[in-house]
């Protein structure tokens, strides 16, 4: 069974004042088919974990290991990680002027699979996936993310997750900024991907709201760059009622 294994991960971010440590020893194991929610207050390092796993050049891994089925993820370039089966749905998807969504999707799919998708089948698949996510067909000819609303950008990210069929998907605050309808559409997309491909999901979120639509198997609470508490779905319910106060207060006290 494919496994994404994170061991004692330390990550720093490049700042003007020098390298600033953000992650201070993260341990996490995700098996395919599992959904892990990572929750935590702002600044706890949730998004840093997502970016570091994808290989963003701004983040330096200073210690620890990340393996995908025993393969060293940290030794891979950004594109190699994606081809190995990692997918990051970004919090702030980037505009790429002049590159159409259709061209982008086909180019990425070809890179990930190592061969071009069969033309007719691919066309149908894209069309169907766009319909499911209520993305208007005219989007295929628009430039990637250019002029997209916040909700359109997030649906476009999940469209890619459904089409590229990664082994592990990291969703970096995909729910933030979405209204209830958009949240439901996006969540349906994630659940379809889970049903169809047995993808392992790392769901990073500040709010418990999305967990009503995407059921986590495990919940991890991130505080000050490491996992402070872990549990099942019931932990999310507790957070919904109590908030992060007891963790942040604790962190302040221990600092």
């Amino acid at each position: 069974m494919p496994t994404l294994e994170i061991r004692d991960l330390h990550v720093s971010v490049e700042t003007k004042e020098g390298a600033k440590p953000i992650l201070r020893g993260v341990d996490l194991t995700i098996n395919s088919g599992e959904t892990h929610a990572i929750m935590g207050p702002n600044g706890s390092g949730k998004s840093t974990l997502a970016s570091a796993l994808a290989g963003h050049p701004k983040y330096q891994v200073t210690a620890g290991t990340v393996t995908l089925d025993g393969e060293d993820v940290l030794a891979m370039t950004v594109d190699e990680r994606a081809r190995a089966g990692l997918f990051l749905a970004m919090q702030y998807p980037v505009e790429v002027p002049g590159v159409s969504v259709a061209n982008f999707l086909r180019t990425a799919k070809t890179a990930i699979d190592g061969e071009a998708p069969a033309l007719r089948h691919w066309g149908k698949e894209v069309k169907g996936a766009m319909e499911n996510l209520r993305i208007d067909s005219t989007f295929a000819e628009r430039s990637v993310n250019e002029g997209f609303s916040g909700g359109e950008k997030k649906r476009h990210e999940i469209l890619q997750m459904e089409l590229f069929k990664p082994r592990f998907a990291i969703l970096d605050e995909t729910d933030s900024g979405l209204d209830v309808d958009a949240l439901r559409v996006v969540s349906e997309g994630v659940n379809r991907a889970k049903d169809n491909t047995d993808v392992g999901v790392l769901l990073i979120t500040h709010y418990t709201r999305i967990l009503r639509y995407i059921k986590p198997d495990f919940v991890h609470v991130f505080v000050d760059g490491r996992i402070a508490e872990e549990g099942g779905p019931e932990l999310a319910e507790r957070l919904e009622n109590e908030g992060y106060d007891r963790f942040t207060n604790g962190a302040t006290a221990s600092a």
Binding site: V78, T107, A111, I112, F164
Partner: peptide, 13 residues
């Protein structure tokens, strides 16, 4: 950032 976005979708640099 454009480069990172495209590479994160498996597209070589």
């Amino acid at each position: 950032e454009q480069l990172f976005y495209l590479m994160a979708r498996g597209i070589p640099e």
